[in-house]
Design a protein around this nucleic acid. Structure first.
Lengths: 216, 216
DNA sequence: GCCTGTGAAGCTATTCACAGCT
DNA sequence: AGCTGTGAATAGCTTCACAGGC
């Protein structure tokens, strides 16, 4: 690793920049300045330049960043060469929606196995992906070399599923259950807590406005 | 407002604390210390005490916080007295899953209207909620006094829908579309970017481990 | 002139550490 | 003895501002 591993937030923004750059490339653009990308991403140009420093990629003071080169550089930085395999536990409404959402979206991150306790769901394909009984989780995760787990089971079951993923060798979890998970600190957990997000939005829907009015 | 409006992150944690305290109350507990709540929430006890300062609620040095009192205090702080109404635009897989997820979850935040362009979906109930054609958005949002919008339309349509919500009077948006939205700054936007989150998890699934090994 | 790359400054968020209470 | 509440210190993140290059 040539530069120190940057923080959480930088990684998130690099992922965003890549998507925006890919779109810009499709729209026929070949170069972009830091302030162009900043405008698309909703951040400052200084932020963009800082984030790009982490890549070791260098732009050109007169033409800015060469889009394809920068995308390649982000790819090399973020992605594992052969891609990574992902599993999802909990094939309810949300689980199915997420499986559909990620189908054909990022080919280097494929959901290759789903798990559920309901025998009606197991043993068949769901969104093009085999659904296994929950009891096979450890075996399938190990056999398929799965490194990332998505948790969409009810809150009460989430911790137990997380433990299984971790024991089976996953080092990253994306948790949609509204409970904080306890995991060894070699495991990275990203929580998506929709209830919390909605309550935040509702709160600021009432306060942002008034706040703007009061100048200071 | 007796204390200054606290930040984004504090509001999020207060929402989390409330859920954890409600569970603790159901489990029969009547009091909790800051370190108890910190353990449940996965934060430090100093963080919990700071966050609670914003409420103006005071604990007792010998017994800690009285759970019901603290929950009431959070409720008074976060929630609008009569509740707030929410609308969702884009009744695809994800939209339906989110509607189902929020049904009967937080009664003070009810999704009372859904919108879609597909005529097969409009004019009927979906997850117990009426689905209207997208063209009625402004009228319905206004008539029903909706203040929060959830965006689950495809990326290409997201900005236009956001504009409609804003013009109709929503001050808060929960955006699931993987594009940054441009809104007036009296409007609060919370982005849930699942692609970005999954890429972050995949990245750290590969790096966290090695980082732990090097003690630094 | 307007860009990138980056040290230094500034800000925000978290944690420390201790006075005060029970 | 062990807690809360909070000023002060620290850590982490973002922006400023400018040297260097085209």
């Amino acid at each position: 690793m040539r530069h120190p591993t940057p923080t959480d937030k930088t990684i998130g923004r690099l992922s965003l920049y890549r998507r925006l750059l890919e779109q810009a490339a499709l729209a026929g653009r070949s170069h972009a300045y830091s302030h162009d990308l900043a405008g698309l991403a909703g951040v400052t140009s200084a932020q963009v330049r800082r984030d790009i420093m982490a890549l070791g990629y260098h732009g050109n003071p007169s033409r800015g960043y060469e889009i394809n080169g920068l995308v390649d550089s982000i790819e090399q930085y973020l992605d594992q060469p052969g891609g990574q395999r992902v599993a999802l536990a909990g094939v309810g409404n949300l689980g199915r929606a997420i499986m559909a959402f990620f189908t054909n979206r990022r080919p280097h991150l494929r959901i290759v196995a789903a798990f559920d306790t309901d025998p009606d769901k197991t043993g068949r394909l769901i969104a093009g992906c085999p659904c296994h009984p929950m009891s096979d989780l450890a075996r399938v995760v190990d056999e398929q070399g799965i490194t990332v787990g998505i948790i969409t089971v009810p809150a009460a079951a989430a911790q137990a599923i997380a433990d299984q993923f971790v024991r089976a060798g996953c080092h990253g979890l994306l948790n949609f259950a509204p409970v904080p998970l306890q995991v060894p600190n070699a495991v990275y957990v990203e929580d998506i807590d929709m209830t919390m997000s909605l309550e935040k939005v509702a709160f600021f829907a009432r306060h942002h406005t008034t706040e703007e009015a009061v100048v200071s």
